[in-house]
């Protein structure tokens, strides 16, 4: 078997805790991504997801371990890794189109202005913003800004796309539309996507695999959950698939009951899990206990969604 596209080996990040001591946010994090994969990572707030993403992007340095992409060590940011930030990070003095042209020009400095513009407009159209391309970010809604930000990232055609809770601030309807657009572009381009989310349903809808992160300090990526659901998936019908519920129950159970104690396998790699092959997480419970546990699980899922 060939080497994976991206390999993360024994990564750790230590911050000063502000009282003269040290805080090991995460430790011994190892995983690999294959080319063209869509992987989401879920974990409780503060466990270090954004920090891992920033290290992958090259914006932050790990305290220990290394990241290797395409056989080369990641040191510093690169156009091969596009980032979509939670707060969109558009340049507010430029129109939507200029923001994308900014990225495209940086990617292909030799292109003519016409080439840059045509290419940029194509990606804006892809996210449905051809009508709003001459507006500045302050004149766009949150959802439209995030689309511009996604269009900018895809327009530079990076090999790896890193998204940090890109839909966290959006209402459910807008989120759904942009999720669909994201999957559409991704399936056309076969780029590799690594995305942080708080939303269990979003992760299942989008991912090939879902990484589950245990709580910090000393957080680990404990498990890698396979999402064995055929594509294309539809938001409207996915919940009819029995596999969807198996995966969802598994994720929620992890977040509610096991995120404090879960560990990777003995080599530090996440344990590979396919919930559809496991016996159900909450097997044929006695009737009395079932009602109470079910409501627990549901409220937890909502909390995770929020």
């Amino acid at each position: 078997m060939s080497k994976p596209f991206l390999e993360v080996d024994n990564l750790a990040k230590v911050f000063a805790d502000g009282q003269g001591g040290e805080l090991t946010v995460f430790d011994e994090v190892s995983f690999a991504l294959n080319k063209g994969e869509f992987v989401c990572i879920i974990g409780h707030s503060g466990c270090g997801k954004s920090t891992i993403l920033n290290v992958l992007a090259g914006l932050d340095e790990a305290s220990k371990g290394n990241v290797i992409m395409n056989g080369k060590e990641v040191s510093g940011p690169s156009l091969e890794r596009g980032v979509v930030f939670q707060n969109y990070s558009l340049l507010p003095w430029m129109t939507a189109l200029k923001n994308i042209m900014f990225g495209v020009r940086a990617r292909w400095p030799g292109w003519s202005r016409e080439q840059v513009r045509t290419h940029s407009e194509r990606y804006l159209t892809m996210v449905g913003l051809d009508k709003a391309m001459h507006r500045k970010p302050s004149q766009l809604s949150g959802g439209m800004r995030q689309r511009v930000s996604i269009a900018r990232a895809f327009a530079t055609q990076p090999e790896l796309l890193l998204l940090d809770e890109p839909f966290g601030a959006l209402d459910a309807l807008t989120r759904g539309v942009i999720q669909d657009e994201l999957v559409k572009i991704w399936s056309e381009t076969q780029q590799t996507v690594f995305m942080i989310t708080h939303d269990v349903d979003e992760a299942i809808l989008l991912s090939d695999r879902i990484f589950l992160m245990s709580n910090g300090p000393h957080a680990r990526i404990a498990e890698s959950v396979k999402v064995n659901i055929n594509r294309p998936r539809s938001r409207a019908t996915i919940f009819q698939d029995p596999a969807y519920h198996r995966v969802r129950d598994y994720l929620v159970d992890f977040l509610v009951n096991r995120s404090g104690t879960a560990t990777p396998d003995t080599q530090g790699k996440p344990r590979v899990v396919d919930p559809t092959l496991l016996p159900p997480v909450s097997p044929q419970r006695p009737a009395e206990a079932s009602a109470c546990e079910e409501s627990n699980t549901e409220s937890a899922a909502r909390a995770v969604n929020a």
């Binding site: 003095w93 940086a106 530079t156």
Partner: peptide, 27 residues
């Protein structure tokens, strides 16, 4: 810092960062 990071992820050198990002931001 977000805008600086945009410049960094697009591999802009210090001079281009100063002119295309920092100057308009600080103008």
């Amino acid at each position: 810092q977000d805008w600086i990071n945009v410049a960094r992820t697009h591999e802009l050198g210090p001079l281009r960062t100063a002119v295309t990002v920092i100057l308009p931001a600080a103008a």
